[in-house]
């Protein structure tokens, strides 16, 4: 097993750092059913530098999404440390630090309340953190919508009226509202048609450039990862088994899990091309 930490730049505190993060779930019902303990994260040591673009890959069930949720403060790890921008977030899931990390969900269609208007959705984080007046929030929401390439006159429309791609843009705009430093993109580009996917990818890269963001991509799609990320970490059964730069990794993964993933992707692609 390869426990080598990610390349660390000298003198700079990583923006995300975890030490031996563990998280398990109890499955089973009530006093009659059999209880089952599932260990999702079995000691994650991860470091992400500011401005980095890291891809987290692994088979389903390897704990990627759980890690993402823990990093975003949506779930509380059972043990271990989580440092965001040099501060220990401990076990409190309502720590202010978590506003610096935002998770964009797998399906943005579900992550926007269909009853809300676009500006309500985008300004929601502002409302929650009691930022400004209503007018100021709406203004800012419209600005954010422009940033992600949505027309300003769409502000009054309900989320239900937007297309899938547009709703993802809304989710991105909302994620930017509190000016986070890290975006976790959990399959953020999955389920879109190719041209929309390309547009979204370009948009996200532009935003990363403009705002000096750190991205954590969680994806199955290795070809996207190749284009978007600079570093790669492979997860398996709740552990990080390998981390490397993208180029090195594609040249030859060292861990057997990584080799499997790459092989599967190549086999699939060559099958598709045939």
């Amino acid at each position: 097993m390869n426990e080598q930490p990610l390349r660390q730049s000298e003198g700079q505190e990583p923006i995300l750092r975890t030490v031996d993060l563990r998280k398990g779930y109890t499955r089973g019902r009530g006093w009659r059913g059999k209880r089952q303990h599932v260990q999702s994260l079995q000691g994650i040591d991860l470091q992400v530098r500011a401005g980095q673009s890291l891809a987290l890959i692994g088979a389903s069930g390897s704990g990627k999404s759980t890690l993402a949720r823990c990093l975003a403060g949506l779930e509380r790890p059972d043990s271990g440390e989580l440092w965001i921008a040099g501060r220990n977030c401990g076990y409190s899931s309502h720590s202010r630090e978590f506003t610096q990390v935002h998770l964009i969900f797998q399906d943005c269609g579900l992550s926007t309340n269909p009853r809300f208007t676009a500006s309500e959705i985008v300004s929601e984080p502002l409302l929650i953190s009691h930022w400004g007046t209503r007018a100021e929030r709406t203004d800012r929401a419209i600005n954010l919508m422009k940033t992600v390439g949505l027309p300003a006159d769409a502000a009054g429309r309900r989320a239900g009226e937007f297309s899938g791609g547009q709703r993802r843009r809304l989710a991105v705009a909302r994620a930017l509202a509190l000016e986070p430093r890290v975006l976790i993109l959990d399959e953020a580009l999955a389920g879109l048609d190719l041209s929309t996917q390309g547009q979204m990818a370009n948009l996200l890269l532009e935003i990363q450039q403009a705002r000096a963001l750190t991205y954590l991509w969680i994806s199955h799609d290795l070809s996207l990862v190749l284009r978007l990320a600079s570093e790669i970490a492979v997860m398996d059964e709740g552990r990080i088994v390998e981390s490397a730069s993208v180029r090195e990794w594609f040249a030859g993964p060292r861990s057997p899990q990584g080799q499997d993933l790459l092989q599967a992707s190549r086999a699939w692609r060559s099958g598709a091309e045939r």
Binding site: A72, G73, L74, H94, R96, F98, T99, H102, L103, F105, L110, S111, T112, N113, E124, P125, I128, S129, A171, R174, L178
Partner: peptide, 9 residues
């Protein structure tokens, strides 16, 4: 969307 709002604190 409830989770998302929760992630904003």
């Amino acid at each position: 969307y409830v989770l998302a709002a929760r992630s904003f604190g």
